[in-house]
Write a protein that binds this DNA or RNA. Structure first.
Lengths: 215, 215
DNA sequence: GTCTATAGTCTGATAGAC
DNA sequence: GTCTATCAGACTATAGAC
């Protein structure tokens, strides 16, 4: 903003770079642990051990376990938004919803997504008090809401289902434990699991076909 | 088993009756608390206070918090089985599935069902080690599996969805957080919530209607 | 009332970026 | 030479099962 604009201010010292890299490593490790153990079971020592740093250092980067978990969740929301943004704008809305859902299922199967459902009560409260989290969640919900509206206009979603219902249903499918059960069962390939999840989810939202008697 | 069988009910019965009544009261209170607060948030003092007994007395009836929660879950499974059993045998299987699902949603909305999804990791492990719970769960799963098979034979379920998938999907819908979100939103009546849940769930399982071009 | 688990703090030392 | 992120790890405080 000053006359010094000639220097684009990439004044990132190596120190800052390392600081950020470590922070990213902490987030990455926490993400993994959250996906595998869940919030309650994961203890701060686990994270410290996984990253290979002292527990105290964690608190250099994040004020609390909850704040750390919140940062991970925000990261998840924003990578989901990135997926939406990456969809070709000329595709019909329903196809874009489908693609994002497909991506979500596959990420879940790969163990890259911390599961919200078993999120602790304490964490949920903290989350709803975190403006950064709320902002990100609202932004994502708006974007999905937009897709839902478009898909309805295109006639590819059942109009008797309300917009909030569809939004929540999509969130719910993203966390659906069915995926974990089938994966744990080991009898189905990942592709097959995703296929059945997609089929039943999308058919559930599709408009009902009126079968007219042909006489 | 002894010669004393001639006396069918010694005065112990009264005591037993009270014991059982108290046990039922504990289960009822725990059920309520589990439904409203969830497992982690619910502390043993809550239960003792709710029932109006000393905390120590809880341990006279149940060995641990987990055992108590397990007993509540078994109770839930068996009341679900009772619902299935109460369905008229001459109805098509899909109608019976529909009726049980409807009952489940309404019980949830009424706050009578402890929500499984936020079940803690520790509890889940305990549950899977509890033969009584496993037995009940398997029995219920068998009964639902039976209905699924029948419904498939009747042509009312999409044959490209596997039986385990459908079973898990039904369990999943029973715990679907969408219900809680919509209820919390307050913008929809209970009937409307149930209607949309039913529509999307059942359409998701229904066979795909082939639309044949009419030329 | 007892005991355990664990989030979170404090300390004093250290290496290395500035 | 100073500052800063880090270390190891003992320590406190608290909640909650039992």
């Amino acid at each position: 903003m000053t006359a010094r604009d000639q220097i684009p201010a990439p004044r990132k010292t190596f120190r800052e770079r390392q600081f950020e890299a470590r922070e990213e490593a902490i987030l990455e490790a926490t993400n993994r642990l959250l996906a595998s153990k869940g919030y309650d079971t994961m203890v701060m020592d686990d994270i410290a051990h996984e990253v290979g740093i002292a527990k105290g250092s964690l608190y250099y980067h994040f004020a609390s376990k909850e704040a750390l978990a919140a940062a991970v969740m925000i990261r998840l929301l924003s990578s989901t938004r990135a997926q939406i943004a990456a969809q070709p704008q000329d595709e019909p809305a329903i196809a874009r919803i489908e693609a994002v859902l497909d991506w979500t299922f596959r990420e879940r199967l790969a163990g890259n997504i911390p599961h919200l459902p078993s999120t602790s009560e304490a964490l949920r409260e903290h989350l709803t008090d975190d403006p950064a989290y709320i902002d990100e969640l609202m932004a994502l919900s708006d974007e999905i809401g937009e897709l839902i509206e478009q898909a309805k206009e295109e006639g590819s979603i059942n109009p008797e289902l309300s917009d909030p219902f569809i939004l929540y249903a999509l969130y719910s499918r993203s966390c659906d434990p069915t995926l974990d059960f089938l994966k744990a069962g080991g009898a189905m390939s990942d592709d097959e699991i995703v296929r059945q999840m997609m089929v039943s989810t999308l058919n559930g939202l599709r408009p009902v076909v009126e079968v007219v008697a042909a006489d």
